[in-house]
Amino acid sequence: MYLRKVLFLTRTACCNVSKLQAPSYSRQKVWLIAANSARFYSAENIDKNKETKDEKVDILGRFFPQAPLNTEDAQQIKKEQEKFEKENKEKSEENEKSWRRMKMGFAVFGGAMTVMGTCMVIEMGAPRRGDDGQIIEDEFSHLPSVLQYLRRTWKELTFYEKMIKEPSREKLLPDPLPSPYQPTYTLVLEFTDVLVHPDWSYQTGWRFKKRPGVDQFLQSVASSNYEVIIFTTENAFMIWPVIDKLDPENKFITYRLFRDSTHFVDGVHVKNLEGLNRDLSKVIVVDWNKAATKFHPQNSLVLKKWKGADDDTALLDLANLLQTIAMSEVADVREVLTYYGQFDDPIAAFRENQRPPHKELSFNGYLNVYNPP
Rank of each mutant, 00 (worst) to 15 (best):
F217Q: 02
T192F: 00
P212A: 05
D193W: 00
S179A: 10
T186S: 10
P183V: 04
K209V: 14
D193E: 06
W206P: 03
V188D: 10
Y181M: 11
K209D: 07
Y185R: 06
Y185P: 03
P198F: 02
E190Q: 04
Q203C: 02
Y181N: 14
G205S: 10
F208S: 06
G213V: 01
L189I: 07
P178H: 06
L195M: 12
Q182W: 04
P183A: 10
T184I: 09
V196E: 06
F191L: 09
L218H: 02
R207G: 07
E190H: 06
G205L: 13
L218E: 00
L218C: 01
Q203Y: 05
E190M: 08
W200D: 04
P212H: 01
L195R: 06
W200S: 11
F191S: 04
V188A: 07
Y202L: 14
T192Q: 02
R207V: 04
F217G: 03
P198V: 01
Y181K: 13
T186V: 11
P183M: 03
V214A: 10
R207K: 15
Q219C: 10
F208E: 08
V196Q: 04
P198N: 10
Y185I: 08
K210M: 08
G213S: 12
L187N: 12
K210L: 14
T204C: 14
G205C: 12
T192K: 02
S179H: 13
K209M: 11
T184F: 05
Q216P: 03
K209C: 07
Q216M: 14
Y181D: 14
E190N: 12
P198S: 03
P198C: 03
V214T: 14
Y181A: 11
T186M: 12
L218N: 02
T186N: 05
K209Q: 15
K209E: 06
L195T: 01
Q203S: 15
D215T: 12
D199Y: 13
Y185F: 13
S179E: 14
Q219E: 14
F217T: 00
P178A: 10
T186W: 08
L195K: 01
T184W: 04
H197D: 09
S220T: 15
S179Y: 11
V188Y: 07
V214I: 15
H197T: 12
S179N: 09
D193M: 01
Y185Q: 04
L195F: 09
W200H: 10
P212S: 03
S220A: 13
D193P: 00
P180C: 08
G205P: 02
G205H: 09
R207Q: 15
Y202C: 08
L189H: 12
V194A: 00
T204L: 14
F191V: 02
L218R: 04
K210E: 13
V188T: 03
L195W: 03
D199T: 11
S220Y: 09
Q182Y: 07
T204Q: 15
T192G: 01
T192Y: 01
D193F: 00
S201T: 06
E190Y: 11
L218I: 08
Q216G: 09
E190G: 04
Y185M: 09
S179K: 14
D193A: 04
